[in-house]
Nucleic acid binder design. Sequence first.
DNA 1: TTTT
DNA 2: TTTT
Lengths: 130, 130, 130, 130
Amino acid sequence: MTNIAILVGRIARDPETRTTQGGTTVTTISLVTDRPARDKEGKTYKDENGYTAKDSEFHRVTCFNGLGQNVAKYCSKGQLVSLEGRIHYTQWNDQDGNKRYGCEILADKVDFLSRPNRSDNQDAPPIDED
Amino acid sequence: MTNIAILVGRIARDPETRTTQGGTTVTTISLVTDRPARDKEGKTYKDENGYTAKDSEFHRVTCFNGLGQNVAKYCSKGQLVSLEGRIHYTQWNDQDGNKRYGCEILADKVDFLSRPNRSDNQDAPPIDED
Amino acid sequence: MTNIAILVGRIARDPETRTTQGGTTVTTISLVTDRPARDKEGKTYKDENGYTAKDSEFHRVTCFNGLGQNVAKYCSKGQLVSLEGRIHYTQWNDQDGNKRYGCEILADKVDFLSRPNRSDNQDAPPIDED
Amino acid sequence: MTNIAILVGRIARDPETRTTQGGTTVTTISLVTDRPARDKEGKTYKDENGYTAKDSEFHRVTCFNGLGQNVAKYCSKGQLVSLEGRIHYTQWNDQDGNKRYGCEILADKVDFLSRPNRSDNQDAPPIDED
DNA sequence: TTTT
DNA sequence: TTTT
């Protein structure tokens, strides 16, 4: 059944990557999407710096295997990215034995809409995400 | 910036609806999307009842105003529904003062793909969701 | 770059399928999506049969390989289907040498939301579309 | 019923805009989405200039009313844009009386992902698309 | 050309 | 926690 998330936003910090015991690469990014904030009358307004105020959402996005490797290699803080994936909910018990819930986007495809910002990636080639 | 969720699934339980002090109707539904579960070899398998095993996601979906009223009126447990909205994260402090996080889909449109199941809605007309 | 079409609708007629010289299965379906028609005041209205009048779009959807085989096998006229794909434009010269243009959806996934209607498929199992 | 197109691409030429007799602004843009081209083995390859070869789709996108006005005002050739809309098919008779068919995306939202390129728009403010 |  |  259809469970699709489509996001275009900026990478909030450099990706985190790890390899599972089974050899799977798992890369996590934080992606910010924002939209104009509205006051009670439904109108947009400026923030103290003169920019249109906005409401931001910070999405936790997880990428596996080859996609995870590419994202870890070519993706960096500040980059503009579009991606497609599905919404997945997680749960676990915290140290106090309380049930905790999380939500993440499991990405199927990631497209890079701006060049990498990391100094060590200045000539990174465009990547094909699948 | 693009933040779109598109879901097709079944309503897990009858909607809950309330009205804020400001007069806004807020209706919440739990929507289940599922996909075939895969074993370690990536193959689908049967559960103990002979059905293809599945992984289910339970989405919390919130509908405001007229859409919230229609969903409260015409939507019921078991119904097949398609919807479009955006992903929104919430946070609050629990009774122990710990920060807690939640995730919900704020729906823009809801389409009913099967007839209502509630006895009191047998002749509910098809609704136009916007 | 993102090019995504997401459709939920009914199959307008039984699928057509063929195999290319290279052995690729190519199955084509006609999918109808509709939305409430609106009059000049932007209001919905009833047709002569008492149903809410609607505007219909007939999408040409193409499915390749295994997906094409499944769709040919299990899909039939009248079935409710959700699908994801991308928009593709074609062009060719007609018999008079005029350039002609077409548009089709190349499907990546197809989900069956209702049982098949064909008498020879009454006990077709649910299919996994990828 | 769900009929959603989501596109991220570049504007191929400056928008064309007109006003109907009824006073509706209608703006049309050509949006290019591309993806890596694949050879028969399914691998990407380089073109004669050393770039990864790509397959391009040129979408005709139509925007009405306020959205049409904003797009006409702030949008220009070369700009990177993300948009959401629905697929619509048109038909008409050509000068020889033959039935001709077209396809366009009727946009609901347009987001500008890069600054305008037109010299007369250098200090255009960011726009809110709805 | 579908279905309610 | 991003960017304009």
